[in-house]
Each structure stands twice: as C-alpha cells, then as structure tokens.
Design a protein around this nucleic acid. Structure first.
Lengths: 187, 187
DNA sequence: AGGCCCATGTAATCTGTTACATGATTCC
DNA sequence: GGAATCATGTAACAGATTACATGGGCCT
C-alpha cells in the first residue's frame, strides 16, 4: 500500500490527470517512486472511492476528455499518518548487479557493454535532474532555496535521485575499468 | 524471472542451503538483490526441477537435515545468457522518499525521526560492508585485489552497496539539517 | 520457562507486469 | 502515410508479501 501514498505525494503540487501522473512516474523523472500508467489509473480510482482524492472531469475539444485529481483533507490526513509510521528500508533489486556478481564466471565483453549503457543512461538522468533542480530553485541559490523556498520536498527527493545516479555512473565506469584491465592482463 | 539469476549468482561462491541463502539475501548483506526466505525455498525447488542447480541432502544430528545446492553447467549457461541480455534500469521505490516529497504538507518532527533512523541503519550497513570488503580482499590492497584477485564480482557489488548506503546516510543527514533549520526559522 | 537458532515449507493475498483495446489529432 | 501524443482503461499472469505450521536443541 505504498503506491497509494506515492500518488498522494505527487498530487500535492496541484491537480493532475492520470496521464500526467503517468508521465511523472514513468519517464525517467520518477525521483521518488516508479509506477506504470495502468497502476496509476487503477490507484486513482481506488483513492477516489476511498475519498482521499477528488476528480473533476474536464471536457476538451479535439482530444479526449480527462479527469484532474486533487488531494482531499482526508487524503492529507492519511499522508500525515503515513509519514509518522516506521518504514522498512528500501532494498536493492537490480539486474546489473546480479550480472556483476557473476562477473568471474561469465563472458565480460557483453557485461561491459551493459555497464556502458547504464553509465550513459545514468548520465542522461543526471542532466535531467540538474535541469529540474535549476527550475525548482529559480533564481535563488541552493542554500537560500533550501532555507526559504516554499516547497522543498520535491527538491530534496530530486537531490537524492541526482546523487543516486552519480553513484551509478561512477560505479559503472569504475567497474568497466576494472574488468577491462583484468581482461588485458589475462591474455 | 530475475530472482532466478540472483540465486544462481549467489550460489557461485559454493554450496549453500536455502537457510544460508536466506540469511545472505535477507539480513542486510543483500548487496545485489533482496528476497525473503519463502521465495528462495520455492525458487531453489524450481531451479532444481529445471536442472539449473543440484541439491544434495545432508543428514545432521541434533538439528534438522538440510539440502545444499550447487550450480550445474546448464545453470552456468543460463547465467551466461542472462548477462548478455539487456536490462531494464532498476527504479527507485522508497517509502522514505515519498515522505520527504510530502515534507512541506506534513508534520516534520516525525519525519525527522524517520530520517535519523535511516541514517543510523545506513551507517550500520556501511560498517558491515567495510568489514566484508576487508575480508574479501584479505591482505591485498584494494587496487591489487581488483587486478589480481580471483573473485572480484562480489567485491564490486559490495562496493556499490557501500556507496549507496553512504549516499543514503549523507542525504538523510543533510535533509535532517535542512528540515530542522526551516523549523527553527519558521518560529 | 521463555526465546532464539536451525531448517523447510504451504496457503492466501496483495502488488506489479504484460498484452490488448480504442480513437481522434498533430507532427514529420 | 506513419508515428507520436493525448487519454483511459480491462484481463491475464507473474512476482512478492504476510500469515501460519512444525519441532528439536541451546542459551540465560
């Protein structure tokens, strides 16, 4: 039941449609949670039935109608309670790490290619997060924004996302370096 | 079907029982994957039926018998194929990030407590990973081990785990600092 | 006496993924 | 003419979590 709260948290910034939410959760910018469109449409309906969000239909011309959702007071209370509850630590589940774990028993050329791909992907996310952060803080300096900005939650999660992807990139590059050097010295 | 490969990768270091595997996957040291005991027992049976591992019963006195599992050649081939396949990037799903995302709309004292807990937990893992790395490299220096050690896979994944937890700790501490400073300036 | 460690599971449920469905509009 | 964007879902399946079950040995 954590997607529930992720959706509520995402809707705090203003009304969003399922489609808009899906973009935020899916395409790269999932800086605090990841979910697929289908999950979100389903979850939004469940949330509405539970009275934690309200949706209003917006009739459009030239494109399908949409429903914009907003968090209710009940929804906010739910989030409040959630924030106080203790959380189980988030565990790692990453294909690439499994592959590296097996690196000594497996052909490394393909693995190195995967690591390079991941490093590139991580760099793309780093760039994206950088832009996002600049947008969020506007003309303020980071220190100033963190003290006086009116909405720092998304900024802070974005900072974590940035550091995470920097960690990924650096580790991938280092791992590639280690594996190639070993390849060379084995011949 | 990725747990399958995680189990195979974990068994590369030698025969393990379901129970031992479960400890490795569960208690903190899951440096490349996380899974619960029940999943592992089920997966081991599936792997055995598929011929990717073989189990042998070890009769014990004074405690229940156990079954030790080993990767077969077929299992190794499966891992080889897996290593070459492209992987979807691992996405973030973390309760704590959701809570921080909502930080501006929620009571922060409870949230700060959660962040402190997480920082402590991360530090414990950092210490653990540090010890693990020292054990793995023995008397060699890190650079030397990475070039000439005979099994670097687990070392490399452990390095990622270490960096990840350092990132967690630092971010938690910084976030606590930001939120407390804001609390103070609001009064 | 109570609780933890060893050791392995079953069953019910919840969550997440994959495949499929629809249909107009705008961009290349 | 074909692809991408907007917009919302259903259905089947795979994967993960939670609760429950068993039972002797060992430590305090």
């Amino acid at each position: 039941m954590a997607l529930r709260h992720a959706v509520l948290a995402a809707l705090l910034d203003g009304e969003l449609s399922g489609y808009q939410l899906a973009k935020a959760f899916d395409v790269g910018v999932a800086n605090f949670w990841y979910a697929q469109p289908q999950q979100l449409y389903a979850e939004l309906n469940r949330l509405e039935q539970a009275g934690l969000v309200v949706g209003r239909e917006v009739v459009q011309e030239g494109r399908p109608n949409k429903r914009l959702f907003q968090v209710t007071d009940t929804g906010l209370a739910e989030l409040e309670e959630f924030a106080g509850a203790s959380d189980k630590p988030a565990f790692v589940r990453d294909d690439l790490l499994v592959k590296v774990q097996a690196a000594d028993h497996v052909d490394t050329t393909a693995l190195i290619a995967r690591l390079r791909e991941r490093a590139t992907f991580a760099q793309a996310k780093i760039d994206l997060f950088g832009k996002l952060l600049r947008n969020l803080r506007g003309d303020k300096s980071e220190a100033d924004f963190l003290l006086h900005g009116e909405r720092v939650g998304p900024y802070l999660t974005c900072l974590r996302g940035l550091a995470f992807e920097e960690g990924n990139r650096d580790w991938c590059e280092r791992t590639v370096a280690v594996l190639t050097r070993r390849e060379r010295s084995r011949r």
